[in-house]
Amino acid sequence: NITNLCPFDEVFNATRFASVYAWNRKRISNCVADYSVLYNFAPFFAFKCYGVSPTKLNDLCFTNVYADSFVIRGNEVSQIAPGQTGNIADYNYKLPDDFTGCVIAWNSNKLDSKVGGNYNYLYRLFRKSNLKPFERDISTEIYQAGNKPCNGVAGFNCYFPLRSYGFRPTYGVGHQPYRVVVLSFELLHAPATVCGPKKST
């Protein structure tokens, strides 16, 4: 009989979020998941679920829940969905086509923008091939755009693969920082350890 609540607040209220190319993952297990707390949290810009209804989450049990978190621009949030393409979905964070879970995003301009620009948040701009679902690539190898080998030196046709967002408070909404948490639900042939409040007695 599990009684402790799942530590969703640790994920959602973290002081610093990860850059999207180096997205953070927390495994959540052996706890009671009260999703209504999240669902009623006012400032969400997006709360979209795939393969599961957000209002039914509290009735369900899962083997594991993974909480992935990172920061992207407002106009990139739409790429955090199954079957998407674009710089983020291709080179930074890719969801599987059969994704079961929820994508939760909110504007973090007050936290993550600075006058003069916040350059701490990076994304991958160049990559030889697209990421596989949930693949994480933190390499900083110089990207070779031409035929000539770069030998690890940036220059003509040789690019550092990461780019900084440089968030400023005055940017338009599409270019403002958004914090994103992706909850993915794993249902294995194993005992369920993460259940909603109704199922955990």
Rank of each mutant, 00 (worst) to 15 (best):
T55H: 14
G101W: 02
S184Q: 10
F160T: 14
T140L: 10
D98W: 08
V181C: 05
F8R: 03
R124H: 00
F45A: 15
V71N: 02
C102Y: 03
K94L: 02
V153R: 14
T201W: 14
P191D: 13
T100Y: 14
Y66R: 06
S108L: 01
G117A: 05
T140S: 14
R127T: 02
I72D: 00
P177W: 03
A14S: 10
G86P: 01
L95I: 12
R16P: 09
D9K: 13
C195E: 12
L38R: 04
N40I: 06
F185R: 04
N4P: 10
G74H: 04
S129R: 13
L38A: 07
R127N: 04
A42V: 13
L125T: 07
F47N: 05
I80W: 01
D68Y: 04
S69A: 07
T170S: 06
E141K: 10
V52W: 07
G152K: 11
G155M: 06
N118L: 04
C158L: 02
F44W: 11
F126L: 06
D34N: 11
A42L: 10
V194S: 11
F70S: 01
S108M: 04
E186S: 11
F8P: 04
H175I: 00
A14C: 07
N109H: 06
F160M: 14
G51K: 12
L60N: 08
K94W: 00
E135D: 09
C150G: 00
G196W: 10
S19T: 05
P54K: 15
F160R: 14
V182P: 00
K26Q: 11
E76P: 02
T140K: 13
K132F: 09
S78V: 09
I142R: 02
V65Y: 07
Y50R: 04
I72H: 01
A190C: 08
P96E: 04
V77L: 15
L5K: 14
K148I: 13
K132R: 13
F47L: 10
V173W: 13
F156K: 06
N118D: 07
F12Y: 04
D9G: 12
K148A: 12
N64R: 11
V180W: 01
Q144E: 11
L60G: 08
P7T: 11
E186W: 11
F185Y: 09
P161K: 04
V182M: 01
L5Q: 14
L122E: 13
Y91S: 07
V32D: 08
N24L: 05
T193Y: 12
V103N: 00
F47M: 13
V182Y: 01
D9Q: 12
G172S: 00
H175T: 00
A190S: 14
Y143G: 01
W23E: 00
C102L: 06
R16N: 15
T3G: 11
F134C: 06
I142P: 06
K132M: 11
K199Q: 14
Y66F: 12
N130S: 14
T170Q: 07
N147P: 11
Q84S: 14
P7S: 13
P96T: 06
S78E: 11
N30T: 08
Q79L: 04
F8E: 02
P7N: 15
V180H: 01
D34G: 06
L162G: 01
S78L: 09
F8A: 03
I28V: 08
N30P: 07
G146M: 02
Y91W: 07
C195M: 11
V52Y: 09
K94A: 08
L95Y: 02
S29Q: 11
V71F: 01
S53R: 10
V173F: 13
N92K: 03
V115S: 10
S129P: 15
L5W: 12
C31N: 07
V77F: 08
S200V: 14
S184G: 12
R136V: 08
C6H: 07
K26C: 08
N58V: 09
G174T: 08
D90K: 13
A154D: 11
A22D: 11
I28K: 03
E10V: 09
A105S: 14
I80Q: 01
A18N: 14
D90N: 13
G74T: 01
P169T: 06
C31L: 06
L57Q: 06
I72E: 00
F8I: 07
Y171H: 01
R163L: 15
H175L: 00
R73C: 09
K199E: 13
D34R: 08
V65F: 09
N58S: 12
E141F: 09
V180S: 01
L95V: 12
Y66M: 09
G117L: 03
A190W: 10
Q176W: 02
F17S: 04
F185T: 06
Y143P: 00
V173Q: 14
R73E: 07
Y119W: 04
N1C: 07
K48G: 04
S113H: 01
T3P: 11
D59W: 09
Y93Q: 00
Y91C: 06
K110T: 10
L188K: 15
V153K: 15
T140E: 15
F70R: 02
N147S: 06
N40S: 13
V11R: 03
S78K: 13
F17C: 04
K26F: 08
N92T: 01
D34E: 08
Y35H: 08
K56V: 09
L57K: 06
F45P: 13
A46F: 10
F160Q: 13
V11W: 07
S113K: 02
P191L: 08
N75Q: 15
P149Y: 10
V77D: 00
D68F: 04
P7D: 14
L187M: 14
Y121H: 11
K199L: 12
V194W: 10
G155T: 06
D68G: 03
A46K: 15
A46L: 14
A67D: 00
E10L: 08
K26W: 07
Y91Q: 05
L131R: 02
H189R: 13
V181S: 02
K56I: 09
S113Y: 01
K114I: 09
K110G: 11
N1G: 12
G146L: 01
F44Y: 13
I2Q: 14
T193H: 12
N64C: 11
F8G: 04
P177G: 02
W106I: 09
L183P: 00
P149H: 11
S139Y: 07
P149C: 08
K48Y: 06
Y39D: 15
S36H: 10
Q84M: 13
D98E: 10
Y50H: 06
A105V: 12
N92C: 03
I88E: 00
Y171L: 00
F41M: 15
T85S: 15
N130G: 11
V181W: 03
P191R: 14
L187H: 13
S53W: 08
Y91V: 05
P7Y: 08
A89V: 06
E135F: 06
P43M: 06
